[in-house]
Amino acid sequence: MQGLKELGRYSSLLYQALRSSTEFSTYRKNLFQELVKVGTDSVPIIMLVGIFTGSVMTLQSAYQLEFAFIPLSTIGAIVSESILIELAAVISGLVLAGKVGARVATELGTMRVSEQIDALESMGFNSVSFLVVPRVLAGIMMFPVLYVVASIFGIGGGIAAGYFSGSVPPADFLKGARMFFYPWNVVFGFLKSFVFGFIITSIACYKGFYARGGAEGVGKSTTEATVLGCIYILLADFLLAALLL
C-alpha cells in the first residue's frame, strides 16, 4: 500500500512537471544553472571514473587472458565494447546517483523543510516548474553528454593502461575495438544514460520535494534518493537490455 501511494505521488509529481514544462520562462535560468551543476561540474569526476574503469578492465582482462591462445586485440574488443554498451552509462550513473541525486534531494529537501518551497508557491511560483523541471531536464540532457565523456576516457584509459603496462599494444587494442564497434551499441549507451539521467533526477526531486521533519528528514530523503537511484538504475539497465537486445 505504501509503495503504491509513493508510486502515485511520484507519478503525479512527474505529471505536474510535464504539464508545467511549458512554462519555460519560469525555469530557464534555473535550467542553465542545473545544466552546469549536473553536467559541466560532473565532467572531472566522470573523467576519473572513465579512466579507471577502462584501465582496470584492460589490466584485468589482460591478466585473465594471459595464458589463453587469444589474440591481444580481443582485449581491446572486450574493453571498448563493455565500456560503450554498459560501463560508461552504468558506472557513471551510479556515481552520479551519489553526486547529483544526493545534491538535488538535499537542496529540495532543505527548501521544503525551511518553507522555501512554500515561499515560492506563496509568491505565485509554480514550484514544480521552478525546481523539478529544470533538474529533471538537466539530468536527461547532460547524462548523455557525460556518457560521451565516460566512454572516451574509458577507452582512452584502457589504451593507456595497455600501453604503460606493456600488456596490450595500442594498435592491437584499437584493432579489436574497431572490429567489434557497432554503432547500435553507442545508441544503446546513449539511451541508457538518458534513462538513468531521468531516473536519478526525478527520484531525487521526488524525495526532496516531499521531505519532511527537519534536518533528519532531509538526511533520510537524501539517503533514499541515492539508494533508490542506484537500485532503479540497475533495474532499468536490466529492463533495457532485456527489451532492446
Binding site: S114, E115, Q116, D118, A119, S122, M123
Partner: peptide, 15 residues
Amino acid sequence: RQKFGILFQGSALFD
C-alpha cells in the same frame, strides 16, 4: 496567492 505576502516562521529566505 500574489495578493498575499507571507513572513514565514523561519523567514524562508532563499539561501
